[in-house]
């Protein structure tokens, strides 16, 4: 859902910045040709707005909320919910926490000392976020709002990505923070999206047992599908090298 070029120019002028592609390129480091194309076509990518905001020290959420598709972004709390934070913790980290809680003798928490959680986005993290905020018909509602086909949404999720338009639609349908969708899809950083510095580590320590087990159970289901897909991919690769090698 790119922003309109006239709105973008107006915003730049309001911030006393030159709308020329050369000046913007120098400011943001984005290729001049790319900027020129965006301005000429009348659609400026959200990433360009964010790059300008970052370069000028403006809050990226404030910058995005100037543009019509993102006006509602601040109508809800910016901070993520517990379920959203939990969705961005890798299943291996969830299982490690399960082990720590199971037996301090067999799995001492000190084993993990000095080792960071697996960074996100990780394999399946976007789908995990969608599942965490899904009221039951989230894909349908995303499709209706954006006009994008359900199969396209499924493909995006399989590739662990979501365009900003779909991320905003998902947040609207899920009733959560609009900013978190942009964090999960890597358009903005966790800090820009109102995440505490150790939000995931703290959430992992605080999550109730039942929520932890439920999260692991849901992830195992996703993992089963992914393992099956990878097994098929490996068998295919083996067959091809066997037959042609």
């Amino acid at each position: 859902m790119p922003v309109s070029a006239p709105e973008f120019r107006e915003w730049l002028e309001g911030s006393a910045l030159s709308p020329s592609p050369t000046a913007l390129s120098t400011l943001t480091g984005i290729n001049r040709g790319t900027l020129n194309n965006q301005l000429r076509r009348g659609n400026v990518a959200e990433s360009t707005v964010i790059a300008v905001a970052r370069a000028t020290g403006t809050n990226v959420i404030d910058a995005l909320s100037v543009f019509s598709p993102y006006r509602t972004i601040q109508s809800r709390p910016i901070e993520p919910s517990s379920a959203e934070i939990l969705s961005q913790i890798h299943h291996a980290d969830l299982m490690a926490e399960l082990q720590f809680r199971t037996s301090q003798k067999h799995f001492p928490r000190e084993m993990r000392k000095g080792i960071d959680l697996i960074a996100f986005p990780h394999d399946g993290s976007v789908r995990a976020w969608i599942d965490a905020i899904d009221p039951g018909d989230i894909r349908q509602r995303m499709s209706e709002e954006t006009g994008m086909a359900l199969t396209y949404i499924a493909t995006q999720l399989t590739e662990n990505k979501l365009n900003p338009h779909l991320a905003i639609a998902a947040s609207r349908a899920g009733g959560g923070s609009f900013a978190t969708g942009l964090v999960v899809t890597e358009l903005i950083t966790p800090t820009e999206g109102g995440w505490q510095i150790r939000a995931r580590e703290d959430e992992l320590l605080e999550v109730p047992d039942d929520a932890l087990v439920e999260a692991i159970s849901a992830r195992i289901h996703l993992l089963q599908r992914r393992v099956k897909q990878r097994k098929e991919a490996r068998e295919y690769a083996e067959k091809m090298t066997e037959l042609l090698g």
Partner: peptide, 24 residues
């Protein structure tokens, strides 16, 4: 192209590159 497939087979590339489906 065929020699590359032979190279992949000799070096067991599917087994080494696509080891555990769980590995990240």
């Amino acid at each position: 192209g065929l020699a590359l497939f032979a190279y992949a087979r000799k070096n067991r590339t599917p087994q080494t590159e696509l080891r555990s489906a769980l590995s990240i």
